[in-house]
Design a protein around this nucleic acid. Structure first.
Lengths: 194, 194
DNA sequence: CCAGAACTTTACCACTCGGTAGATAGCGGG
DNA sequence: CCCGCTATCTACCGAGTGGTAAAGTTCTGG
């Protein structure tokens, strides 16, 4: 993609910093969730926004910082949409309802699931810029699950079990969009929350 | 890493084609499983083997071909080690024993699990050189599981359920090496195969 | 209506990428 | 012993990378 001036020179469009920043983050999210951080360049992000890579660097000091901004932006948005979710009482029925609701919300955000899948894999490497982010996040998720599964015989094992199935199912759903994740989820829950 | 001549010039070591090819595939597997295909270069592979990147290209016509060679080599090796595994009868006990044996074998190959995790994520993108490989492989795995779970009420759903938990657990184990995957596996099987 | 702030640009830089062409050197067979 | 085969090398290419410096252009407040 040389993307030379095709039939028209680029019009210089000036946007407010807030709008531009959000646009950059949105496009970066889209591109990274599509091909992974290692396969996306500053120029790609710029092109998707209709600006040069140097303009992207005007808002984010480096590519790594942009990646972290993408993740933080996502966390902030999650906090908004999920904010009012009550912590479940430690009973099977309450926990099942709680996790099912979050699961349903997730599968309406295909791009985000894909982002975390791809980045989570890349970030296994300790030198990846998002390595620490994912390490901390995984620890936190396990702890939260363990608390909601206190009624289980072994909450520690149960937490890993639920977490493993959960994200494994999301991955299968990414690979095969035709599959009905809620049906599989229900089959698992029928045995797990009993 | 400029890797200049440190205290000693490089000795030109000449190996037989078979030995060198295998060495290259082995090192490429190691590097890719560590950081992903998109983050490994021909020069990295060459350096790991003590040769120049051009010498790597002497054996594999391109980086993409090297990646495919890595995957094919792995499949061939799997066929050797797993060759004598009998297809299970479609009963709960036989299926449980069958899958448990494969699972135990897998968790002795951390690097390979990691290779498939990282590559599987990158290969979601249709432009990735291993995209077709993973699409076909996933289809095949689901079909095989479905056959071994014919005794289930809904083998299609059960196959996805088992596959999801399976690979989700492997991923959790990659993230946290301290966890005991066999314990979690047993907990899941206790309910799933009943 | 002008001046300054700042958004976007062009012009670079040093480096790495995958890949090609041709020279060099180590090994086995005669 | 040396000659041919070929594994490996040096040298190079065009394109792309993240990032810096500074000029230009657009908007806005006084």
């Amino acid at each position: 993609m040389t993307s030379t001036d095709e039939t028209e020179a680029r019009r210089k469009v000036r946007l407010s910093p807030e709008v531009r920043r959000e646009q950059i983050i949105r496009q970066a999210t889209r591109l990274i969730s599509g091909s992974g951080f290692n396969a996306v360049s500053l120029a790609d992000v710029g092109e998707a926004c209709g600006i040069r890579k140097q303009s992207v660097l005007h808002y984010f000091p480096s590519m790594n910082q942009l990646l972290l901004a993408v993740l933080e932006h996502r966390d902030a948005q999650d906090f908004v949409t999920a904010g009012e979710e009550p912590m479940p009482e430690p009973t099977p029925a309450a926990a099942r309802q709680y996790f099912t609701r979050i699961f349903e919300r997730n599968i309406n955000q295909r791009e985000i699931i894909r982002l975390y899948y791809i980045l989570g894999a890349e970030a296994l490497s300790p030198t990846h810029p998002a390595h620490d982010y994912f390490t901390q996040r995984s620890r936190q998720a396990t702890a939260e699950l363990e608390m909601a599964l206190a009624w289980k015989a072994d909450p520690g094992v149960a937490a890993v079990e639920l977490l493993a199935f959960w994200q494994g199912l999301e991955i299968e759903w990414l690979r095969n969009p035709d599959l009905d994740p809620l049906a599989v989820w229900a089959a698992f829950c029928h045995r797990f929350f009993a």
